[in-house]
């Protein structure tokens, strides 16, 4: 069994109109090498599902998003994701805006193969008003409580970036927080993982095996993508690249900003990408953010 693929092979699996989900959180451990490959492709009309970071802004800027399902989009140190904001304010982005916990519930429902999970989050707010597809239900038990029935967020494809993987699809997330990647992986028909390092076969101790957060049977393909989360962080190995994120963000103020960014950072291969960001050594040494 060998699930190793190239990012081009992975992206070739995408079809127009698919619903795709991303692991990570804001500017943290996003599968950016794969996002860049999607930007190089002609796939379009995607429904994007994410705890949003720059992948949301970039795919929006490239006009690839038909609908965004999200709880937030942020670069953290730069609170407002510039291209998300631009698309949103232009009124061109169809959105399903959810509470962060509801979002998790939607992924979990998909992973559990149930149509919905009940929740209180979202009741009495405009999350209901602006998402008429969200329905409430009444508890069938004596309490009779009215709850929001969060529908399953079924994904056609999920992309997750991890620290280590092997060719069988085993993965390790050694950063301090695993975020919600296990739910993203389980909600999808196919999950493709990019990894800092892909080994023949992981050989772990009991202590390190605990960093495995979802099983390989959920993983369709594995892509080796060293520094593949850049410009987002990939703890404990490297932090996010503020210089890069600032350049990206500042560009959004100019009409030609996105085209300039694409020319410099997308129309190249990953080796060239690393060189254009100061080289692998420099990226590996980016300090982890302090919160």
């Amino acid at each position: 069994m060998n699930k190793q693929m190239t990012s081009a092979q992975v992206v070739a699996e995408l079809r127009d109109g698919m619903t795709i989900g991303f692991g990570g959180w804001g500017p943290r451990r996003k599968p950016m090498a794969i996002v860049r490959e999607i930007l190089r492709s002609d796939v379009k009309d995607l429904t994007v599902v994410a705890y949003g970071g720059p992948e949301v802004g970039m795919l929006a800027a490239a006009g690839k998003i038909r609908k965004l399902i999200f709880g937030f989009a942020t670069l953290d140190a730069i609170p407002l994701e510039p291209y998300f904001r631009k698309a949103r304010q232009a009124g061109t982005l169809d959105v399903m805006e959810l509470d962060e916990g509801l979002f998790q519930w939607g992924l979990k429902a998909a992973g559990m193969r149930v149509p919905f999970l009940p929740a209180r989050a979202g009741l009495a707010t405009d999350v209901l008003t602006h998402n008429p597809e969200l329905k409430t239900i009444r508890s069938p038990y004596d309490d009779g409580e009215e709850l929001l029935a969060m529908p399953a967020l079924n994904l056609d494809v999920a992309f997750v970036h991890v620290n280590r993987a092997d060719r069988l699809g085993n993965t390790l997330v050694t950063g301090h927080d695993v975020y919600f990647d296990q739910h993203v992986a389980r909600a999808a028909d196919k999950c493709f993982v990019s990894a800092e390092v892909v080994e023949e076969k992981l050989e772990l101790t009991k202590a390190t095996a605990r960093f495995n957060t979802f099983e390989r049977s959920l993983v369709t393909g594995v892509v080796e993508a060293p520094l593949g989360a850049h410009p987002t962080s990939c703890g404990p190995e490297y932090g996010w690249d503020m210089t890069h994120l600032k350049e990206y963000s500042d560009g959004a103020r100019e009409d030609s900003g996105w085209a300039t960014y694409v020319e410099k950072y997308v129309r190249c291969n990953e080796d060239e990408y690393r060189e254009r960001n100061g080289g692998a050594e420099k990226i590996s040494a980016l300090p982890l953010p302090i919160f």
Binding site: G71, Q89, G91, E97, A119, R120, T125, V127
Partner: peptide, 26 residues
């Protein structure tokens, strides 16, 4: 924490509702 102005074409788009709906009701 979401938008200022009209929802479909906001004057200012902020972060998104984040965890506010769930936090506030729980």
């Amino acid at each position: 924490l979401s938008v200022v102005g009209d929802y479909s074409k906001p004057k200012v788009a902020m972060l998104g509702v984040r965890g506010l709906p769930g936090n506030s009701i729980n």
